[in-house]
Design a protein around this nucleic acid. Structure first.
Lengths: 157, 157
DNA sequence: CCGTATCCATTCCGATACTG
DNA sequence: CAGTATCGGAATGGATACGG
């Protein structure tokens, strides 16, 4: 996506994820898609980005299998962009980003847009790391279980 | 960070988060920092990025308060980069990305680097969305609790 | 309404080369 | 070792203008 040294073959899931959705607009588009935005123009208005960029991003997201195109639900002749199952699974990433931003990037006076449980209208519980058997885990309790984070397979020509 | 229309004043936490760490290398650097990488050269070797880029990214991350510089622990004359508390809180974001990538971006035959609980050496439990009172939440059960996702119009009154 | 095609400015990345 | 100084190429992003 971003030229770089494309890490889509790296064994590190983070590198791959970033390769897939690590550019700036992708996750914002996904965020809107979660909010049931489906139409090109709707995305464009809400995000305020140029149409060519939006078109490119949507194309990429469709190619990645995160969005898919469907016939319009309102009978118009156009297509709509909706999240695939894979795309919907990004919800955890979004929430993680949301909660981190909420906690670390707002001044006392500022009010972030909140994310709520639809039923109770209460904020969600913060995501928590847990061991397989359900115990809490601190950042320092984590280790990487394989050779190298970013191997040199993508070394040099 | 990526020029754009800098959204660091947007009320949406995702936009702000992306503004802070949404570019390509930042999270990879943070990932290494979680793995106790602290030295300039160490980052450079492991990530394989150009030194000027690395320098710029490190500078930004320090400016954001995600990394901080400390005197070297081994007595050498240099500084080390270590995660701040704010930086360490990014662990949830990293895990979310890690788990999503692991689940969605690897072919059956491929083996991702795993992330383990240090004590048991078992993979972590998948992050789960929950309501404030601990019930599971599906993506469709979520709503946004404020005016507009990216409202420039509700700027300041 | 949904895009594609252009043009242009900015930024990013990679690869040296060069100091302290 | 830890950067800074450059340079060029690629890609991003913004703003229209133009077709389906």
């Amino acid at each position: 996506m971003v030229k770089r040294t494309s890490m889509d073959k790296a064994p590190c899931p983070i590198a791959r994820s970033l390769d897939a959705i690590g550019d700036w607009w992708s996750l914002l588009i996904v965020r809107e898609a979660f909010g049931n935005v489906r139409r090109f123009n709707e995305f464009q208005k809400r995000l305020g980005l140029a149409k060519n960029i939006l078109a490119a991003r949507l194309r990429d997201l469709v190619a990645e299998g995160i969005l898919e195109m469907q016939p319009a639900s309102d009978g118009s002749a156009y297509q709509e962009y909706v999240l695939t199952k894979k795309g919907r699974r990004l919800v955890t990433v979004m929430i993680a980003l949301w909660q981190w931003g909420e906690e670390n990037l707002f001044e006392p006076g500022e009010v972030p847009t909140r994310l709520l449980d639809k039923e109770t209208r209460q904020p969600l519980r913060k995501l928590q790391l847990q061991t397989a058997d359900g115990h809490p885990v601190r950042p320092s309790d984590i280790m990487i279980g394989a050779p190298a984070p970013v191997p040199e397979l993508r070394a040099r020509k």
